[in-house]
Write a protein that binds this DNA or RNA. Structure first.
Lengths: 147, 147
DNA sequence: TTGAAAATATTGAATATTCAACAATTGAAG
DNA sequence: CTTCAATTGTTGAATATTCAATATTTTCAA
């Protein structure tokens, strides 16, 4: 029983499509929760990365939160206006800017974290503990193998 | 050995983040291949869905290719200009528009399909046959459980 | 030491996406 | 039938993202 040639396979069977679909759905759910605090997913990611208290450069941040540089710059501008984060010039390399989370940012981040945990728990419930950790494992390994 | 509380877990452990990261990477690779024909991923998806020769309404298409309605309308406008697809008013329900793929669209779609197959084969090589099909299975089931 | 190349972040213009309002058609209740 | 709500698709204004160009600082070779 030969498989049909891939060229004719429906779009829904492509890995790229399944990833896009799953990402869209999970993201939509998360967005919905975070919107309780009026914060987009990307800002939560930024706050979470910065909440280690260390200073992170823009380039580092852009990689970590999956945004390209100009988009990040403009989002950080907004977050600075909202006094959630602040910029400090890196004394060791003055090309760089180090980003820090403010106290207000920390408070917000905590609230957001618990909203996000809500979601993860909801997924665990409907999707199962085992499937979830297996899926995470496979995704990590896919990401690894792509570099 | 208790797990740490989720609130302190790094962003990289969240399912939502892993999905975003994997999606970004796979999409980037696919984009790179399709750019050989100068076509964005979404247009390939549209062509692929329409290549069954049936007419599909805008709403149906929007769902299938993961775009919201106004974005799809504008992308279809471009594709109509490029004579890859065309609009026909649905005779049975005149609110609807049925989209069809043109001959030119079919030719392009074939080329794109083989570029996409290239990518899937590349993934199979570096990531493995077994992991790939297991990942697809888990993604499908995650999507199912989210509805 | 100097000067060219690389790295880092930002800006502004061009492009794309989204939100809300709209127009057209259909469905369905009274 | 008639009217009013729901469905479908598009439009325009507001918003966001991206690309290319820029400014600044650092690195490093000559």
């Amino acid at each position: 029983m030969a498989k049909p040639p891939k060229e004719n396979s429906p779009i829904t069977e492509h890995l790229a499509y399944l990833l896009a679909q799953a990402n869209r759905e999970i993201n939509r759910q998360l967005e919905l929760r975070l919107s309780k605090e009026g914060v987009p997913v990307e800002q939560w990611r930024i706050l979470k990365v910065l909440s280690d208290g260390e200073g992170h450069s823009m380039g580092e941040l852009a990689d970590a939160v999956l945004l390209n540089h100009p988009t990040l710059t403009k989002m950080i501008d907004r977050m600075v206006s909202d006094t959630l984060v602040y910029r400090v010039q890196d004394p060791g390399d003055r090309r760089k800017v180090l980003m820090f989370i403010s106290d207000r940012g920390k408070v917000l981040c905590k609230k957001l974290n618990s909203l996000a945990v809500d979601q993860e728990e909801h997924i665990l419930e409907s999707y199962g503990d085992k499937s979830t950790s297996e899926l995470k494992r496979l995704l990590e390994s896919l990401i690894d193998s792509s570099n």
